[in-house]
């Protein structure tokens, strides 16, 4: 069942030249997690704020659990939308204790029920025993958990998370990501997560929406986004990608490193680009005259090689961390692509 539905949302901030969102249509299924991914300034936070009711789109409609909350005829204020939000800066109330922060959204409950709910939620996020602390006495990760508990306690229809891990240390980030994912799964909470980190988007979400300049580029599963991006922007944004130039001839695409299927059914003679990811590219030692290794980055679990083709184009290849070739080696490239993605060269 579709829980959140945005259709043809457009929004321009006052005094801004370009629209923050244009003609955006998006749906979130109940119990699912959707990541909204994009570079900073792409409008991804604006989507969250529109769902929460903090911004009012100029056009389009939003429904939450079947209820129209924003269209030409309806406007539901944030406090009546039943959405929970976790802010990038957590926005904890500094004058309230941890327990009071979590209880803030529970005032419709009986006192005893609220106390119980606070205890239960704090237990869920692993903060039992911190009830009477003030938020400035907590570490960043703990503050993050309070923010999460506070948003979850009223059992929101949907949980909105705005770059929730960006203020954490890298090691903390991975751990929190796992914990949050676990909590969302346990509670069956529908979530929309905004991030500029594709790893985070892939790890957390069932589906990922990629946004660029206020426009939706693609919505799909993480795998599909990664392997079969629908635009060069998506291809580039969600991971290392190289684009090989090719030409359609005889129903095939001919490139410098080989011949590929014309999966895009481009017309004969058309100039196209084939996207290849480093893990599709394998290096085989070869006699001089062809491609040449010009760089190697050791990344722990892998080596990322940069290879220059005779035409001058750079291609990246990911090899096992124990497979080491000296820089300057002449190599051949073997492309083993499970998914061939092609774009018409503009």
């Amino acid at each position: 069942m579709t829980l959140i539905e945005l259709s043809q949302i457009s929004l321009t901030y006052p005094n801004a030249a370009a629209p923050a969102l244009s003609d955006l249509t998006l749906a979130v299924e109940e119990g699912a997690a959707l990541s909204i991914l994009g570079p900073s300034g792409c409008g991804k936070t604006t989507v969250l704020r529109a769902i929460a009711g903090f911004e009012r789109p100029h056009a389009g409609a939003i429904t939450i659990a079947g209820r129209p909350v924003c269209d030409a005829a309806h406007w539901v204020v944030p406090e009546e939308r039943g959405v929970g939000m976790v802010f990038q800066d957590y926005a904890l109330f500094p004058h309230l204790t941890v327990a009071e922060n979590v209880a803030f959204g529970l005032r419709r409950l009986e006192k005893a029920a609220a106390v119980h709910m606070v205890a239960q939620t704090l237990d869920l996020v692993g903060l039992t025993g911190f009830e009477d602390r003030y938020t400035h006495e907590l570490s960043g990760g703990q503050q993050q958990r309070v923010a999460l508990a506070r948003a979850l306690a009223p059992k929101p229809i949907v949980l909105l998370l705005d770059e929730p891990f960006s203020n954490l240390d890298p090691d903390m980030r991975g751990q929190m990501r796992e914990e949050v994912e676990e909590i969302l799964r346990l509670t069956g909470t529908t979530a929309v997560l905004v991030t500029h980190d594709h790893d985070e988007a892939f790890a957390m979400a069932d589906r990922v929406a990629v946004l660029n300049h206020g426009r939706l580029e693609q919505v799909d599963t993480p795998e599909a986004i990664y392997h079969t991006p629908s635009t060069p922007f998506v291809a580039n944004f969600v991971g290392q990608a190289d684009f090989l130039l090719g030409r359609v001839d005889n129903g095939k695409i001919h490139t410098e490193v080989g011949i590929f299927e014309n999966v895009g059914e481009h017309p004969p003679g058309a100039a196209v680009e084939i996207m290849i990811r480093p893990d599709d590219v394998h290096i085989v030692p070869a006699s001089p005259g062809g491609a040449r290794i010009v760089g190697r980055q050791f990344r722990g679990s892998e080596n990322l090689y940069t290879v220059i083709l005779p035409s001058g184009q750079h291609v990246h290849s990911s090899e096992g961390s124990t497979t080491v070739y000296p820089i300057g080696s002449s190599v051949d490239l073997k492309i083993v692509a499970t998914h061939i993605v092609t774009f018409l060269k503009s």
Partner: peptide, 10 residues
């Protein structure tokens, strides 16, 4: 954000 957080908490 404090104000928005509060409003999102009904």
């Amino acid at each position: 954000h404090l104000e928005e957080a509060a409003r999102s908490l009904a």
